[in-house]
């Protein structure tokens, strides 16, 4: 197999062909293949945060599925209580949490499913879905007010 010396993040936003992958044809692939997730030693990976790791070009962390999205979740840090519900239920490992704090969304890996918005317990929600082309500032300026409990008659 050819050597793919692509640094992490280098090919973000590009398709595989644009990124310079010279893919093997079906008749050239030998039976069984190994994809190394990391460059160099990978024994201590569990103790390293994503930004400290040396991802190889084979790791899907270096790829993107941003084009799948129709709506994007927008995160409002002022309302967030760091409950981490979105982190535990995000199917795409796209919620960036460090030191028990929710920092934001990894828009390279988010597919816009909206699970994080559904499980957000705050009032108003600290994550809301907006159309993909909306600017972040514009979305934040349209954040709804706190909903009052409906009075019982």
């Amino acid at each position: 197999m050819q050597d793919l010396k692509l640094r992490a993040n280098d090919n973000r936003g590009l398709s595989q062909l644009e990124a310079g992958f010279d893919l093997l044809g079906w008749h050239e692939i030998t039976q069984g293949s190994i994809l190394h997730s990391f460059d160099g030693d990978a024994t201590n990976i569990v103790n390293l945060k994503a930004e400290e790791r040396t991802y190889s070009g084979y790791n899907s962390y270096t790829a993107t599925v941003a084009s799948w999205r129709v709506d994007k979740p927008v995160f409002n840090i002022d309302v967030c209580i760091d409950c981490q519900n979105c982190w535990v239920w995000c199917p795409d490992s796209s919620i960036i949490s460090r030191d028990k704090q929710m920092l934001g969304i990894d828009y390279d890996h988010c597919k816009g499913c909206g699970v994080c918005v559904e499980v957000c317990p705050t009032n108003p929600k600290s994550l809301l879905m907006f159309a993909e082309q909306r600017e972040l500032g514009e979305a934040l300026s349209q954040w709804p007010e706190k909903k009052k409990k409906e009075e019982k008659n």
């Binding site: 899907s60 270096t62 239920w89 490992s93 949490s97 028990k100 597919k111």
Partner: peptide, 26 residues
């Protein structure tokens, strides 16, 4: 608690091609 749990470093990376909202990856 969930805050404690969230300090773990993910070993399952994004940009897999499961459907949006698939529970497999959770």
């Amino acid at each position: 608690n969930l805050k404690e749990f969230s300090t773990n470093n993910d070993r399952f990376e994004g940009a897999h091609t499961l459907c949006p909202g698939c529970a497999h990856s959770m």
